[in-house]
Structure formats: structure tokens, C-alpha cells
Design a protein around this nucleic acid. Structure first.
Lengths: 174, 174
DNA sequence: GAATATAGTCTGCGTAACAGCATATATTTC
DNA sequence: GAAATATATGCTGTTACGCAGACTATATTC
């Protein structure tokens, strides 16, 4: 890439996106990173019911305050029917509660209990440490760069794919 | 959060890896990107049996020439028992063949048929285009940066986690 | 050549995701 | 304001998928 757009007619320039990469390598690298991270992540949050997803749900509830379960599920890409029993687990563990949503009596709002907030706070430092471990091979500048690019990209995708990842719902509902 | 780690003693410095990130956000962003990409990826390779994984297997066979199924599975993080029927599908589609490994009669080497090579070649431009689409929001410099960082990280993880992703096997076997 | 290790396959189990239906409430239409 | 439609959640049953474990064939070690 970079080599693209040197000619006048554009479409074929798509063929050589990343020098030194075989087409499909990007997904392979991303998968590798994500899987490697999951390992550490899961260890960091082993106290949490439903492991990583439990943590992500609790984190989302606390930091994004989604208006209802749908918004929560949309943010994390979790199907509603799946969400039901995942939340059940967190409720049973006393970490969150389902309260009737103030504006819509069909909906339930998920709120963290005091115990849930405490656990989240405790686990957040472990998760942050896990992220550090993952990024250990990169120096501070590179880590910041990667974080910035990854964030920028995911926001863009997020905007571009309302269907697959309708976090938009979340964004104006939350 | 964010309020923590303001005190002097050092080990807690792990708490604040990525400014503006909530702990766990890295995984969320990566997951979002990967899922967003999978959508396009799957469309690009819809001709391929087993979709993305079928493509990745064929690509690995052609470009890395793994010595046996284990090496192939290790590279992609696919369990041996799963690999068996995934390969079956590719064989049935006439894209690869199992040939006895020259050095070890227990093992089978997976080789692409002519038809498989052709299909791969055809799909690679579509996959490259899908990668481009994914990266569309980034300019050339950013894309190259991201690719470099992602590649560097995945290699490191790869080295650090022989168990979870024993691609090492692949690297000196392939 | 006996014992142990490895490559691949097959079988059965458990989990987890999804489609479809049911219920309660909102919203729109007339 | 009554009927029709849409939405939020929960429940049920089916399906698929990955993985543990057993099995066969071949290598390697002693």
C-alpha cells in the first residue's frame, strides 16, 4: 500500500494492502493477539462469573450505564437470549441487579451492586496489568500508538457496521 | 478510576496502561475490529468451504508448506480432532489432498491441488480488498504503522506462549 | 524386540449459540 | 380510545462445535 494511487485508475490498487503481508495475515495477527490476551485476561478475572464476558458486562454497566439489556448486549455483541442467562449468573453472584427501567416498563436496567463495584475496582488493576503484560514487547510510544490506532479503527467500524455491531444503539441510548 | 495510582509506590504503575482507556478496553477494541473484519472476510471467501478457516488453512498450506497436520493446526490454533473434519471438507471440495508425508509414514502432508491454488489466488485479491476496506479509515502511514505493530506484537506473543499457540512447532517444522 | 512416544482418526459428551414462541408494555393508526 | 404493530425480555428446543478420551499405525528409544 502506499504504492497505491500512483496510477490513474484506482480499483486494482486494493491488491497489495500491507507490504510483507500475505492476504489474510492481518486477521491472523489480530486473532493471535486477541487469543494471547484472552489467556491473561481470563486469569486476571478468574473471580468473575462468566470470566471475561462477565467482567466486560460489569465494566460496561458501570462505565457506560446502558439504558437496558439490549444496549448492553449490542455493545458487547452478545445475543439477547444469551444475555439473559449471563446476567442471571451475575445476579446470582450478587454483582448486579435488574431494576425496572425508569422510562420503559418493558425494559430492565442492569445496575451494579456495591459488591459488584468493589469487585470491578479490584479486578480493573489486574486487567490493566494484563494489558501491560500483553504490550510488554512494545515501548511506551508504540503502545500508545497502537492503542490510538486500534481505538480509531474500532470506532470507525462501529460506525460503519450498524447491523453487525449495533453499538450505536448503545451510544445514543447509554 | 483514573484516580488511583496517584501515590508514590511504584508497582501500581501498571494500573494506568493506556490513557483514556478503561481497563479491558483493549480487548473490546480488538474484538470489535476482528469481528468487523470477519464479516467482510467471510463475504470475500464465501466460495470457500469452511469460510474463513478454510481460506486460512489453504493459505497456510500454500504459503507456509507445513510438514503435517499438526503444524497446520498449531499455526491456526485449531485442535487436531477438529482439523480432521475441516480438512475433509477441503478434500471433498477438491482443493487440497492428503499425501503421505515423505519422512514420516504416520503423518499426512496437506498439499493444494491445482484447483486449490487457483481458488486461493483468486480469493487473495478479494481478501486483500477486504483488508483495505477495514483499514479505509486510516491513511497509508497509519495502516503501515498498525500492521507493523500488530505483526510485532503477535510474533512476541507467539514466542511467549508456546502452549496456547504452539506455532513454534510450525516455525521450525514448516 | 519391547516399551514408549507421536500423527491422525473416531466417538461421545457438554456447552453455548441461535431460532422461534410467549408475555408484557409502548407506540402508532384510525 | 381501541386496534394494530413494534419492542424488551424471557423461555424452550434444536443444532453445532469444540474438546477429552480411546484407538490404530508408525517412530523412536533402550
Amino acid at each position: 500500500m502506499g504504492a497505491m494511487a500512483t496510477t490513474a485508475h484506482a480499483p486494482l490498487s486494493l491488491d497489495k494492502p500491507l507490504p510483507g503481508f500475505i492476504p489474510g495475515d492481518l486477521a491472523w495477527h489480530l486473532g493471535m493477539i486477541l487469543r494471547g490476551h484472552q489467556t491473561h485476561f481470563a486469569q486476571a478475572v478468574e473471580e468473575m462469573p462468566c470470566s471475561v464476558r462477565g467482567y466486560q458486562m460489569l465494566s460496561t454497566v458501570v462505565h457506560h450505564d446502558p439504558a437496558n439489556q439490549q444496549a448492553l448486549g449490542a455493545h458487547l455483541g452478545i445475543d439477547r437470549t444469551v444475555l439473559t442467562y449471563l446476567i442471571d449468573d451475575l445476579v446470582e453472584a450478587g454483582l448486579v441487579e435488574r431494576v425496572p427501567a425508569p422510562t420503559d416498563r418493558r425494559a430492565r436496567k442492569i445496575v451494579a451492586t456495591e459488591q459488584g463495584t468493589e469487585l470491578l475496582t479490584r479486578l480493573e488493576s489486574r486487567v490493566a496489568a494484563a494489558e501491560q503484560t500483553l504490550l510488554a514487547e512494545l515501548d511506551a510510544a508504540e503502545s500508545a500508538q497502537l492503542a490510538g490506532l486500534v481505538s480509531k479503527l474500532s470506532m470507525a467500524i462501529h460506525r460503519a457496521q450498524p447491523g453487525a455491531n449495533p453499538c450505536e444503539a448503545m451510544d445514543h441510548l447509554g
